[in-house]
C-alpha cells in the first residue's frame, strides 16, 4: 500500500507535466492549426539551454530559468513563419504537412542535442534546482520539493491558462479561431497575429515545463524529447485531438498509471507497458475517447 501511495504521489507530479505539455500542444493545434509533433522536443531543448546557462553562470537559477523560457518562446516564434507558410491553405493536407515539418524540426533538435551539448552525454542538473531534501517522509512515502513544485506550478499554470482562455480578449479570440477560423476572420480577428500569440504562449508554457522537468527528473538526454513527444501525442489522441479538458484527464491518468507500473515492474519494461496500453486505446479508438475537437 505504501508503495502504491508513494507512486500515486510521483504520478501526480509527472502527470501535471504531461497535462502542461498536452495543453501547449493543443493550443497550437487549435489556434495556429498545426500539429506540432516536436513540441516536447522544443521543451527538452530548453532544458539543455537551462543546463548550459547554469554551467556557465555557476548555477544562477534566475538566469537559467529566464534562458529556458526565452529559448522556448524564441524557438516557437522562429518556427512560426515556416509553419504558417505550409499552413497557407488551411486544409487537411496542410495540417499533415505541418506535422511532417514539425518532425523535421524534431530531427534537428535531437541531433543537435546528441552532438552539440556535453559531448552527447546525458546532462544532470544541480541538486539545488530540485530543491534538496524531502519535505515529508513517512516510511516509503516521501515528498520532494521538485514534485511539489511540479504539481503546484502545474495547477497554477493550467488554471491560469483556462482563465486566460475563458475570461480575456486574446482567449476569446483563441476560442473563436479554434471553432471557426473563417468566421473569426469575418468578425475581424487577425488570424496571423492571434496565431503568433498562441506560439508565444505555448513557448512560455514550454519554458515552464522545461524548468519543472529539470527539477523533477534532474537529468535529460537527447532521446528524452522523442520519448516524451510520443507520450504527449498519444495522450492528446486518446483525449481527442484539441480536446483541452480531455487532455487534462488523460494526461494526469497517464502520469499516475506510469508511476504505479514503475512501482511494481522493473524500469525498462514499465515504459513499454505504458506504451502498450496507449497503443491499445488508440487502436480501439483512433479518434479519441472524448471526441475530436478539430
Amino acid at each position: 500500500m505504501e508503495v502504491f501511495i508513494a507512486q500515486v504521489i510521483n504520478g501526480i507530479s509527472l502527470g501535471s507535466i504531461y497535462v502542461l505539455l498536452v495543453t501547449g500542444f493543443n493550443l497550437l493545434l487549435l489556434v495556429a492549426m498545426i500539429i506540432h509533433f516536436a513540441y516536447p522536443q522544443v521543451v527538452v531543448f530548453s532544458m539543455y539551454i537551462i543546463w548550459l546557462v547554469l554551467e556557465v553562470t555557476g548555477n544562477n537559477l534566475i538566469l537559467g530559468a529566464l534562458a529556458g523560457v526565452t529559448s522556448s518562446i524564441l524557438l516557437n516564434l522562429i518556427s512560426a513563419p515556416l509553419f504558417q507558410k505550409v499552413m497557407e491553405k488551411r486544409g487537411e493536407v496542410d495540417i499533415n504537412s505541418t506535422m511532417v515539418m514539425s518532425m523535421g524540426i524534431g530531427m534537428i533538435i535531437t541531433d543537435v542535442l546528441s552532438h552539440g551539448f556535453n559531448k552527447g552525454h546525458p546532462i544532470a542538473f544541480p541538486d539545488t534546482l530540485a530543491g534538496g531534501e524531502a519535505i515529508l517522509r513517512v516510511g516509503l512515502i516521501s515528498i520532494l520539493p521538485g514534485q511539489v513544485s511540479a504539481f503546484v506550478v502545474g495547477v497554477i499554470a493550467v488554471s491560469g491558462f483556462f482563465l486566460l482562455l475563458y475570461k480575456t480578449r486574446p482567449g476569446r479570440a483563441f476560442r473563436a479561431i479554434a471553432e471557426d477560423p473563417n468566421g473569426a476572420r469575418l468578425v475581424g480577428i487577425p488570424l496571423l497575429k492571434t496565431g503568433l500569440q498562441s506560439y508565444a504562449l505555448s513557448g512560455l508554457l514550454g519554458g515552464l515545463i522545461a524548468l519543472l522537468l529539470a527539477a523533477l527528473i534532474g537529468s535529460a538526454s537527447s532521446g528524452l524529447g522523442e520519448q516524451v513527444a510520443l507520450k504527449v501525442i498519444a495522450v492528446s489522441i486518446i483525449a481527442g485531438l484539441g480536446n483541452l479538458v480531455g487532455g487534462l484527464v488523460v494526461g494526469l491518468s497517464l502520469g499516475i498509471l506510469e508511476a504505479i507500473v514503475q512501482g511494481y515492474i522493473s524500469g525498462t519494461w514499465s515504459n513499454a507497458i505504458a506504451f502498450v496500453i496507449m497503443l491499445l486505446v488508440i487502436l480501439a479508438k483512433p479518434t479519441g475517447l472524448f471526441g475530436l475537437k478539430l
Binding site: I35, F37, N96, M99, Q227, L230, I233, A234, I237, L241, T268, W269, N271, A272, F275, V276, M278, L279, I282, L283, P286, T287, L292
Partner: peptide, 22 residues
Amino acid sequence: IGDAPTFAVVIVGFTFIYITRT
C-alpha cells in the same frame, strides 16, 4: 487503423517502434 486519421496512424507506428525496441 485502415481508415484512421493521419496523426493516429503516425503515433501507432511510433509506439510500435518503441515497444519493439524495448
